[in-house]
Computed example of a mutant assay.
Amino acid sequence: MTKSDRAVVRTARLLVRPPRGADRDRFVGLFRDEAFMVHAGVLTEQEAGDRFDHMVAFCRTVPFGKQPVVELSSGLVVGYTGVDHIAFEGRTWLEWGYRLVPECRGLGYATEAGQALLATAHQTYTGELLAIIAPENRASQNVCHKLGFTFWKQAPVAGDARNLYTRSVGAEWLLTHT
């Protein structure tokens, strides 16, 4: 088994795996799609390519970085889940996020993929994660709760009011929740 094989997480319906070069066109298209990028805004082709390149590089160092969610029944990349760095209030956080194509929302995929990748986080990291959600995005707030995040506060992020959620992961969390 190779290092990249160990990084693949499989659930009943999904595969969550590090991004590959072959995913570039799919993600550049998704990052430029208004329906996919709801609550964030579409990117230019250059920005989308840069974001994909960052995703690949980040996953090389953080095994639960943002990575593709692949629907097993279709074999299609239907979104992503995982963390990236974000600077907020003078601190660098690991920010948990996910995004799915519209036709895969409301099917439980975000929770399923998130729970699977959080298992990797528990094995490789001890600390706190941050989730940032638009106040009107009730569906994502529900996913956050299902993933064990708790509401922290509402604060401006990049000029917009956002609901902030936190959750601990790692050895200490496992001791108190198993």
Rank of each mutant, 00 (worst) to 15 (best):
A57K: 13
P102T: 11
V70Y: 00
F52E: 00
F58I: 05
V62A: 05
G75E: 10
G114I: 07
S74D: 01
L72D: 07
E89C: 13
V62C: 10
W93N: 06
L76W: 15
A48Q: 01
C104N: 14
A48I: 07
R60I: 03
I86W: 14
T92K: 13
G41S: 03
L76V: 15
H85L: 13
A116Q: 07
A87G: 11
A119G: 14
G82L: 04
C104K: 15
C59Y: 02
V56L: 09
I86P: 01
T111D: 11
E47Y: 07
A87M: 12
Y80A: 10
F88M: 12
G79M: 01
V101K: 12
G65M: 03
R91F: 14
C59I: 01
Y80M: 11
G114V: 09
A48R: 00
D53I: 05
M55H: 05
V42F: 02
Q115G: 08
G106C: 14
F58W: 05
T61C: 08
G114H: 05
C59L: 10
D50N: 09
P102F: 09
V62W: 03
R91G: 10
R51E: 07
V77N: 00
H85T: 10
D84M: 10
F52C: 02
W96G: 05
F88I: 07
S74M: 13
V70Q: 00
